[in-house]
Simulated assay, not measured.
Amino acid sequence: MNKSEKIYIAGHRGMVGSAILRKLKAEGFNNIIVRTSSELDLRNQQAVNDFFAAENPDYVFLAAAKVGGIQANNVYRADFIYENMMIQSNVIHAAYVQKVKKLMFLGSSCIYPKLAPQPLKEEYLLTGLLESTNEPYAIAKIAGIKMCDAYRAQYGCNFISVMPTNLYGPNDNYDLTNSHVLPALLRKFHEARINNAPEVMMWGTGSPRREFLHADDLAAACYFLMQNYNEEGLVNVGTGEDVTIKELALLVKEIVGFKGEIKHDLSKPDGTPRKLMDVGKLHNMGWKHTIGLREGIEKVYKEFVKTEAVAQ
């Protein structure tokens, strides 16, 4: 990618898209185009086709998606499959029509079978049943990977797919109903500390293991892969290290400074027992994460406290 070439980031206000935008700006890229969802509805095929015809970008980072935690995925099943299928189908096809030089499609680790061997290797895709709570979202993301591969096979398009592990960072969603586990815990412990609550209730047993990657590390990996990876299939992006949800909760509790107890709501689902990425493929290409979990959470919590203060 040359600094002057036109780059379109779909989903620039989300956690992933905004991290990619920060990274590109830091690297000196100055011809970046973005649109808010109110300016361009990516679910609308005609609007997307018109946008691509008018702007004709050289590179596309497809980070736009309807996302949420276990509760949102399970409740809004139709929304998750419909909106994600529409967004990615419209953008990928328009990128082909306008002869975009390269497109990166961002997926999620939930594409892997629920009971796949750990750590998750790229070749485990489609080898078993998915976790039922987020199956519609996973199906949409798998379709995106296969669509990129199909356009590569039939039309020679340089479309690549990147599957990040669980992410956290600036512009995360802290809504307790729809958020992922780490921001939900941060908010719960923060509010409990402020209100001098005696306990914090966490969902499930705390036994599932999860891996967490800072969004800035993902953006660095995306920047690296956009310049160095040109193959079908997908690339896992993660740390290759995981913790139990209980260990995560204890770490967040310590960082936030909450002194009370942790209680478990066993009526809530645990989700997949473990989701650790095998990042050997990425490491062998020469990229590795740099932000440790404690350091990353401390950074994110400082940002969260600042944002909360401004909101009040």
Rank of each mutant, 00 (worst) to 15 (best):
157 C>W: 09
111 I>G: 01
138 A>W: 07
110 C>D: 13
142 I>K: 15
120 L>E: 01
151 Y>C: 09
153 A>V: 13
120 L>T: 02
134 N>L: 05
144 G>Q: 12
154 Q>A: 15
108 S>P: 05
143 A>Q: 14
112 Y>I: 05
114 K>G: 00
130 L>Y: 07
148 C>G: 11
149 D>R: 07
156 G>Y: 03
162 V>S: 09
119 P>L: 02
121 K>D: 00
153 A>P: 03
161 S>L: 10
115 L>W: 08
122 E>V: 04
132 S>A: 13
113 P>T: 04
121 K>C: 08
125 L>N: 01
153 A>H: 10
124 Y>S: 02
113 P>W: 03
134 N>H: 12
136 P>T: 14
145 I>E: 15
157 C>S: 08
136 P>Y: 04
136 P>I: 12
124 Y>C: 00
111 I>K: 04
126 L>F: 00
110 C>A: 14
117 P>E: 01
135 E>W: 05
158 N>Y: 02
152 R>E: 12
144 G>Y: 10
134 N>K: 04
134 N>W: 12
110 C>G: 15
133 T>G: 06
133 T>F: 10
148 C>I: 10
126 L>Y: 01
109 S>F: 07
129 L>C: 00
160 I>K: 11
145 I>G: 09
129 L>R: 00
158 N>L: 08
116 A>W: 03
143 A>E: 06
131 E>T: 12
142 I>N: 11
144 G>H: 11
161 S>F: 03
126 L>H: 02
119 P>M: 04
141 K>Y: 06
148 C>D: 11
143 A>M: 15
124 Y>V: 00
117 P>G: 01
108 S>Q: 05
119 P>Q: 02
128 G>T: 02
127 T>K: 13
138 A>S: 15
147 M>T: 13
142 I>C: 13
156 G>E: 11
136 P>M: 11
152 R>F: 09
153 A>R: 15
135 E>Q: 15
155 Y>K: 14
140 A>F: 10
133 T>A: 15
125 L>F: 02
159 F>C: 13
115 L>F: 03
142 I>T: 09
118 Q>V: 02
128 G>H: 02
139 I>W: 06
117 P>N: 01
150 A>G: 05
119 P>D: 03
161 S>V: 05
145 I>M: 14
117 P>R: 01
132 S>K: 12
111 I>T: 13
137 Y>C: 10
120 L>Q: 03
109 S>E: 07
138 A>P: 13
116 A>Q: 04
162 V>Q: 07
120 L>G: 04
126 L>V: 01
134 N>T: 08
114 K>Y: 01
119 P>K: 01
130 L>F: 07
155 Y>F: 15
